[in-house]
Design a binder for these strands. Structure first.
Lengths: 223, 223, 223, 223
DNA sequence: CATGAATGAGGCTTCATTCAT
DNA sequence: AATGAATGAAGCCTCATTCAT
């Protein structure tokens, strides 16, 4: 991976004025909640692990849910931000033309690195998404308003270039997204201990998507 | 869907000697746990919803976890059993030749129906899988020993027939499984309220997989 | 010991019309209550150990306390009855003259055998005596009305014979009783696993009492 | 009694940094457990009597058993400590020669005062000894390693002085201990409401022991 | 007679949250 | 800002007891 995205926790620590205790609390909370789930993690456990008095947690985050959200919100924010930032640069400034396959490769590598750097946080997101309307809402809004339009624009861009079979964008997403997400989940959450050849697996995934969505003559069938 | 698989709850009720109260308890537990998660669901809530004294739950299931497992175990059992049962018939008795595409279609329809009939149960499985070693263990064992060999045999069967590009079986699974699972999750859990054309979506998914795994000349590109 | 007093449980079984299940219940209850105490023993444990349905216990004994009393009452009865029965015979019919030392020896042997045959029952008595007014009452009444008068008569008998220093009877009891009870408790409840020479220990106890209560010139100081 | 040993509760309060609530909890627990037994006393009752929230008990003592042990442990400690402390002074510094009878008198008075000041605590010890291996263990160890050696030394001391008949020490203990313990139990637990002449009763007990263990020529004190 | 499912009160314990220090 | 004692509601579970079969 060419660049290492810092973990969201680091971003939190650097960009927000957090005391050492706050950092400890957040770290402890992430560890414990990702291991046991939000409902099964007690504030007292978090305080103990953080080496902090229980009261301190409530002084900073008000409620247990406040603590959860203060962890989850930045994940959503970071989920949106960096994906397309660099693509935009490339696209807008035409620094270099990037083909569909290269783009996919690049994109998956980027999400791969993001996931790798934030496994516990993403575990939390995935687990709690279903049970907390606030999180569900925030995530869906973020997706609809920030992520999907970008994906859509990008896919349209490649459609225009004639690299994609003319399926409707939403259906394309429904194909590509599970493939990417499925790969990342398998890699990091279902079989994290397997001996992976990451580059090869990424390439394989890209290839599979290419077969599925590109026009016949353009997909390099035997490469 | 040609045949409606009965829900696992029905199987439980019919095949095991359960009292009326036990059925009520199981139903209430499935509802509440799938809505709020295991840890956030109290046995008192379950008892209330089931119209039963709290003690009755413990008389039958011993512990809260016992109740969870008595719900989850049959899901794992049913996850294994019916998938390939009918395929075997077809294969063994050569009643009719089934091509890869037809098989995939059939297979996805089958899992689609299974999921449709058991959404809350599967939600529970998915959510609690990560936190309960017993469930994780049971599921992984079931998959490795019962499901994967069948899938493997089936894929080999089609490889021999020359319908699949010669990728190694495990890699094929890593492609197909997320696509199928991703589709089903999107359909039933992420966007259940969308106005779906199920037959079309299934066909689309099949097609996508076909592009990804079949030899060029055999995939009917424009059908 | 010349004669083996049967255990109270045997008396119960033979003298009362008890069904096989009732016997099982009583036996299980004695075992469990003497091991864990009345309050810490559940009727369900007793039923399980007895191989009986819980309802059966309540059919026969009404309440848990009823069961306890049906165990304890015969102990009190048997505590009273056999002690002096044989002494009376001896005394009244003058079959043979028994000296104080022989009497004490005889008496302690008798209580020794009684205790040996009924350790768990006596454990229960001792433990629950303090917490159940019914038991306390029954025991104290039995003692005052049945046991103490007999002891008193006996001591007076030996006082008349000049074998005992003229202390008042109650004070004598306060000396003798703890010595006897203390010996039996040490033997059967505090150090039951020690390698005892029972005959020697009984003789020693008798001697100690003799020193304490007999007139100087009559106690065989150097034996 | 020349000096009043403070009750163990006072020692607890003074020597350990206990909050007012903790003291209340301990006091309530001692009262209720000594009255009803450990198993029959609920933490909710204790909390109510102590005027404290039930949770407060668990904040300080972790479990119900933790509370019991925090009560019982100091009893065992105090059971050991003060018995021979003062005797040592006398013995070592030869401040004054103390004869066997005086020593016994002194010793029984000391234990009398200890018991008087701690009746409920000792009731608890006696009742729960049988059911809690931790207590049994702690007590037996304390006895074997701390109390018995002291008693043994003391008896040997008097044997050397020729005041005791040469019986083996253990047998002597088996005689003396039940007599003393029996007296104290009768006085404080079996007939506490009787109108006792304590000094006379102690003297009587001493005398009884003297008759039992001393050499003939030394024992006929005054009777 | 015997069973065992069912009950609901109550037991021990945990938890999120508050507040005086 | 930080602490940690205190709370009381709620959680899981056990129990003696009842009753229909």
């Amino acid at each position: 991976m060419e660049h290492q995205p810092t973990s969201i926790v680091d971003i939190l620590v650097h960009e927000q004025k957090m005391t050492a205790k706050q950092v400890k609390i957040i770290e402890a909370a992430i560890e414990l909640i990702s291991e046991n789930g939000y409902a099964a993690t007690s504030t007292s456990d978090i305080a103990k692990r953080a080496g902090v008095a229980e009261g301190t947690i409530f002084r900073h985050y008000g409620t247990k849910k406040g603590l959860l959200l203060s962890i989850v919100d930045p994940v959503i924010a970071q989920f949106i931000v960096p994906v397309f930032a660099e693509r935009f640069v490339a696209e807008v400034f035409h620094t270099s033309y990037i083909g569909l396959q290269d783009f996919l490769h690049h994109f998956i590598q980027n999400r791969f690195a993001f996931m790798q750097a934030n496994i516990p946080l993403i575990k939390i997101m995935v687990q709690e998404f279903a049970f907390h309307p606030e999180i569900k809402q925030a995530f869906q809004t973020a997706f609809k308003e920030k992520v999907y339009p970008e994906i859509s624009r990008t896919l349209d861009y490649f459609k225009e270039k004639g690299e994609i079979r003319g399926v409707d964008t939403e259906a394309l997403c429904r194909m590509i997204a599970p493939t990417v997400i499925g790969f990342l989940f398998t890699r990091f959450m279902i079989q994290p201990d397997k001996d992976w050849d990451d580059e090869a697996a990424i390439a394989e995934t890209v290839q599979y998507i290419m077969y599925g969505i590109t026009k016949a003559e353009q997909s390099k069938r035997d490469s």
